[in-house]
Design a binder for these strands. Structure first.
Length: 648
RNA sequence: GGACCCGUAGCCCAGCCAGGACAGGGCGGCGGCCCUCUAAGCCGCAGAUCCGGAGUUCAAAUCUCCGCGGGUCCGCCA
């Protein structure tokens, strides 16, 4: 990918670091620049060189006047460098004013990037697990864009699976959607009822065939009936109509009809396509509403059925057969992934993989129809055609499958195989409540957002009972949704999380509302200053900023673009979350310990206001990279003995 | 049987990629703070065998190996 790096696209802190590196070179220590680290406490300095393996020259050179280094001193086993924080503050402040909402990241790249994410099956509403995917993918897309890339987001619609066919069959027999029902919730209901009926038909068949397993089968049957009962409580009339319509189908009838639909889809038969489309369209309509509410948008919706195109399939199979890795496995064409993984260029990129036994990848069924993974290869090639780098945000349980797709591309000699990336995330569990989409048992993202927004409204109204409806809704949305996003984004994607609604919606410290609150406070100070006719100087006397928290805030903000860039490049969104948290935390402490508008003199006041502005821009632009908005106001809680609590 | 991810105070999480100065936060607990720009806040106290062991190193939460515990994957399913 072409990467252009210009001086002015460095972070302010990186400019300081560059000066330190120059200094080290002038001292003959140029080979140690990579050892530079940020000291655990600013009392040591702002960059440090551990000296354990370094022999210092007998005398250190004088620091050049124009550099950003304020001082160099040896402390224990470290050579500590202090930055000229006033200059760093000024640089950061000016950069922040100039770049505004784009301050937090460095646009040093010029690639075309595709982020494929969410890609929930059009069978039921999105739940918390999909939310983690959606927010992670959305944030990665925002980060990649902030890095200067041209980003497209894609949603892969699985309209080819057996489960979708089950939903489609049920849908044909289902009564009309009740008024007021959300389309994807309705699809989820129809699908779950149909699937339960299908499984019951299978069970009935097995009970006849294998009477010795009678008690086990009956208990599975009872279990299904439990789910059915819960569904019936949701829509009694519709449940009764649909279940009786499906009751006539025995196992064989189900399978006959499902098989027909599958083959029809594969062959591109319009009759069957329309049948499936009807359900899928409805589900996607619901997804769009949910995603819209959550502030997640897509540039493209890609249908899996379009990947079963016979010509592309033929071309792929031809390329695969011609590959030296083509093997016959269980009588059909497959690729020897294990051997591909041992190719020197593949090992070079993927490391040793650890996976010593990668199973062969079957490309085609004996009856000539395509497989999910085959279609995924075709889809990957399409994506690679449109972009320089492709990121697939897909659950960690699919690591092997994702790897196989990539190895298949290597096997057929695809030139961009190494540009396909799997962004893995671990699952989200719910405490005490197992989610089962197949049986209609889940906590939907819609419910979660609804709860979060309602809780946020309550908090707002507690503080500001007179607020008008429109502002209330707007603030509640950014606070509630922000809280949900932060709770999922602040934890490393590699960690499985047990989703705790109470915890996610804890609006106290270590939450989105905490950071939003800090940003809003900064805004409020700036607004108050403006109302009192105090303007922030364009040339603030930042050399007045001597308070330790002021220095710390300057350092943190000056480093933000580096942190965000790291988050973008390494895909570790949580490192950005954590840095922003620190800024918010330090600012809150600062706010409590130092008067800004009430500063003893005008110069100091101007400098503090400038710092306030820098913090505000840092927080707001940083949060926007996670898709979190800052509301325009968040009232403080009234003192116990003031206000009119009686209206509550 | 093989492989991948995770394991840090009662609970949740950061730090691990690029090993370095007393392991940072938060929740919960205890005690304080609205005369000052928003108390969704601030200050203080208590709380840690960094899962265990070995190795590499001047130096290991961080790298390597062996274990233990939890999650996941290994279909002509999607």
């Amino acid at each position: 990918m072409p990467v252009t790096s210009v001086m002015d696209e460095q972070s302010p802190f990186a400019t300081f670091r560059a000066d330190v590196e120059d200094y080290l070179r002038s001292a003959g220590l140029g080979s140690f620049t990579s050892l530079l680290e940020i000291p655990p406490s600013a009392t040591y300095g702002h960059l440090a060189l551990p000296l354990f393996s370094v022999t210092l020259p007998s005398s250190l050179p004088v620091v050049p006047q124009e550099s950003l280094i304020a001082g160099v001193r040896i402390a224990g086993h470290y050579l500590n460098f202090t930055a000229k924080t006033p200059e760093l503050a000024l640089m950061s402040y000016r950069r922040a004013l100039e770049r505004g909402g784009r301050y937090a990241c460095l646009p040093q790249e010029r690639g075309r990037v595709i982020v494929e994410h969410t890609s929930a099956n059009p069978l039921h509403p999105m739940h918390v697990g999909h939310a983690r995917n959606a927010f992670l993918g959305d944030s990665i897309a925002r980060l990649k864009a902030a890095r200067g890339n041209k980003v497209e987001t894609h949603f892969y619609v699985d309209d080819m699976g057996l489960q979708v066919m089950i939903a489609a069959l049920g849908f044909e027999r289902a009564p009309p959607m009740p008024p007021g029902e959300k389309p994807d919730h309705w699809v989820g209901f129809v699908y779950a009822v149909s699937n339960i009926m299908y499984e019951l038909a299978q069970l009935d068949h097995m009970i006849n065939e294998e009477p010795e397993k009678y008690s086990e089968l009956v208990s599975r049957r009872d279990n299904l009936m439990g789910y059915a009962q819960a569904l019936r409580e949701k829509h009694q009339r519709e449940f009764d109509l649909l279940s009786s319509a499906l009751r006539g189908l025995d196992k064989d009838a189900w399978e006959k009809e499902l098989g027909q639909t599958l083959r029809g889809m594969e062959g591109g038969d319009d009759r069957f396509k329309k049948r499936v489309e009807a359900v899928v369209k409805l589900a996607l309509e619901g997804f769009r509403q949910t995603l819209d509410e959550a502030g997640v948008s897509f540039d493209s919706w890609d249908f899996e059925s379009a990947m079963a195109n016979p010509e592309e399939l033929k071309a792929l199979l031809a390329a695969a057969s011609a590959s030296p890795f083509a093997v016959t496995y269980k009588g059909t064409l497959a690729l020897n992934c294990d051997a591909v993984a041992k190719l020197p260029n593949v090992t070079a990129e993927l490391g040793n993989l650890g996976l010593k036994e990668i199973p062969p990848m079957v490309l085609i069924r004996s009856d000539g129809t395509s497989l999910y993974e085959t279609r995924d290869i075709i889809y990957s090639m399409k994506k690679l055609q449109l972009a320089d780098e492709v990121y697939n945000v897909v659950g960690a349980e699919q690591t092997l499958a994702q790897l196989q797709v990539k190895l298949a591309l290597f096997a057929i000699g695809h030139p961009k195989a190494s540009h396909l990336h799997h962004v893995a995330y671990e699952e989200v569990r719910l405490p005490g409540r197992k989610m089962a989409g197949r049986y209609g048992s889940y906590v939907t993202l819609d419910e979660l957002i609804q709860t979060a927004v309602t809780m946020a409204s309550q908090e707002i109204r507690k503080r500001n009972p007179e607020i008008d409806r429109e502002s209330l809704e707007k603030s509640a949305r950014s606070i509630g949704i922000g809280a949900v996003k932060y709770s999922l984004l602040s934890v490393s994607a590699q960690k499985a999380v047990e989703f705790n609604v109470t915890r996610a919606l804890d609006f106290d410290q270590n939450s989105a509302p905490f950071m939003q609150y800090a940003a809003v406070r900064a805004k409020s100070v700036l607004r108050t200053a403006e109302e009192r006719g105090i303007c922030i100087p364009s040339d603030p006397r930042t050399n007045q900023l001597l308070h330790p928290l002021e220095e710390e805030l300057v350092l943190l903000c000056s480093r933000l673009p580096d942190v965000a860039s790291y988050a973008a490049d390494s895909l570790h969104v949580e490192s950005l979350a954590s840095h922003l948290m620190t800024i918010a935390d330090r600012f809150n402490s600062y706010y409590a310990s130092v008067p800004i508008i009430g500063a003893p003199d005008a110069e100091l006041r101007g400098a503090r206001l400038a710092l306030c502005k820098l913090v505000e821009i840092s927080l707001e632009s940083g949060l926007s990279l996670m898709g979190i908005q800052v509301p325009s106001e968040m009232r403080r809680k009234l003192p116990k003995n003031a206000g009119h609590e009686s209206s509550e």
